[in-house]
Amino acid sequence: MATEATHGAEMAGHGAENAAETGGLVFHPMDQFIVKPLFGDGAVGMFTITNVTLWMLIAILAIVALMVLGTSRRAVIPSRSQSVAELAYGFIYKMVEDVTGKDGLVYFPYIMTLFMFIVIANFLGLIPMSFTTTSHFAVTVVLALCVFIGVTVLGFVKNGASFLSLFWVSSAPLALRPVLAIIEIISYFVRPVSHSIRLAGNVMAGHAVLKVFAGFAAVAAISPLTIVAITAIYGLEVLVAFIQAYVFTILTCVYLKDALHPHH
């Protein structure tokens, strides 16, 4: 974040027309989300090694470090890293068990994969100068679609056509049921949209706000205030990073419960 001020000043000199318009303050809050190749300046193809690749690799390494290396001693009395790994395990395991019931525990590794990836990617994104993979809709939509398609297929495989009773609210008066069915179907198909945009939107908004405040830090008169604000928002973002991973995971569990037990 601190380098943003000098960067802003540099940009002010560089982009003369921008600087003229804004009087020395230059905001590029969205530049942090640019995907670019790590090697060379070519176009970003499907298999190009980009900053996305780098930060996802770092996420994998962080997860391996925490969940594999951290638990390598298999100690009955855990070390610090092992107790964090056990905490994460117990947290998600209990969540899956509480929300979906015992028969949902088969899918625990999938849900754990989603949670670990999102929470680690969110926290890695909070490192200054890093790239936040979960701030991109391309990423969160894939995650949400995996859940949506997986849960829908699972629902039909497990329950057959009776999975459709999810949309037929049998506890409502008969006259209301068709209306409710339409609402339920719409809400079912809106799930992946809200599921993905909630995560990427929160992460992107927080990071963009940090950048905007960092741009203000170029003005000496308000820079102390700006730094205080950045610190406060950063604290909030730490909270958001965890909460959004938690929300994504628990919604996945709720959708999974609907697939396993579609009857209201």
Binding site: I60, P109, T113, F117, H136, A138
Partner: peptide, 21 residues
Amino acid sequence: EWIPNQVFWLVITLVVIFFVL
């Protein structure tokens, strides 16, 4: 134009994480 790249690397990442976990 950045979407295929992200999706590709995301899928690889998720598969790796899933197998490691």
